[in-house]
């Protein structure tokens, strides 16, 4: 059963069409990876699913609530957002609240629970993520990995049907990526519908059922993740996937040498599955 459906979607910034002719469906409980080069419209597509970005044309349906670009009502936006949340590249934890208060905030501010109940639920979620020791710390004192895991805890605490991830590991130091990917993989096993914009191809292959390749504002290909994200074969998508798999990073200290970045996600092989 499809939980998200977008039809004939287009997004236009002044004269420039960032997304065009997008038709997609996302099944309930599925994990979908959106990949593509920088500036291709991946993040805009994701933001449109949560209506952080208003579509110029077409319709977005989430959990039976349809919003038409011609008439977007505040009430419908709130209904859609009550079913889906987003995890940002830059975490966006509320700086004036502790980790625990951040996780409590969706429950309290949306009047889904009283203070004591919200605190108990939030502590349980933080504990499930192994974050109980930092519950009373403010975001500025957390590492990038901790911040992103708290933001994931905040996103799922009210049990949304859909969680959208916008490059959740892009702003992290390499050694922190694994913890965040492990947390996302845990969610994937809980039947939460997830849409993930990512450059972590190996992770996407292991965790996602489906993948979508976006380029120049259009969906170029969609299908099973292991097929779309395969390194075998030729063509634009295979070239792109291979380029991510074999990223070469040169650092100022390594002007004459280079480091090949190998896939760093080993969750499923290491027993967390």
């Amino acid at each position: 059963m499809s939980l998200i459906q977008i039809s004939n979607l287009a997004v236009q910034f002044s004269q420039h069409k960032v997304l065009k002719n997008i038709d997609l469906t996302f099944e309930e409980g599925s994990v979908t990876a959106i990949v593509g080069p920088s500036g291709s419209g991946k993040t805009t597509l994701l933001r449109t699913l949560n209506l952080l970005q208003s579509p110029s044309e077409g319709t977005v349906t989430v959990a039976g609530i349809t919003v038409d670009a011609k008439h977007i009502s505040k009430a419908d936006v709130h209904k859609i957002r009550s079913q889906s949340t987003m995890v940002f590249q830059q975490f966006n934890l509320f700086k004036n609240l502790t980790a625990l208060e951040n996780v409590m905030s969706p429950l309290i501010y949306n009047k889904l629970a009283g203070f004591d109940e919200a605190k108990a639920i939030a502590l349980k979620v933080l504990s499930d993520f192994g974050l109980e020791s930092i519950a009373d710390q403010y975001p500025v004192t957390l590492s990038g990995g901790q911040s992103q895991r708290v933001s994931i805890a905040r996103a799922i605490v009210a049990k949304p049907k859909v969680v959208l991830f916008d490059e959740p590991t892009s702003a992290l130091d390499p050694e922190m990526v694994s913890d965040v990917l492990t947390t996302i993989a845990q969610l994937a096993q809980q039947h939460i519908t997830m849409v993930i914009v990512t450059h972590e191809i190996e992770f996407a292959r292991q965790i996602a059922n489906n993948a979508i390749f976006v380029e120049n504002g259009e969906v170029i290909a969609q299908g099973p993740a292991n097929k779309i994200l395969s390194t075998k074969g030729t063509g634009r998508i295979a070239d792109f996937v291979n380029s991510l798999e074999n990223r070469v990073i040169s650092t100022p200290q390594q002007t004459n040498t280079s480091e090949v970045v190998t896939p760093r996600f080993r969750l499923l092989q290491s027993g967390a599955n």
Partner: peptide, 15 residues
């Protein structure tokens, strides 16, 4: 105030 703070509130469905 960082725009991301406001967007986070919006995606969490705060008024």
């Amino acid at each position: 105030v960082d725009e991301g703070q406001i967007e986070a509130g919006e995606t969490l469905n705060f008024s």
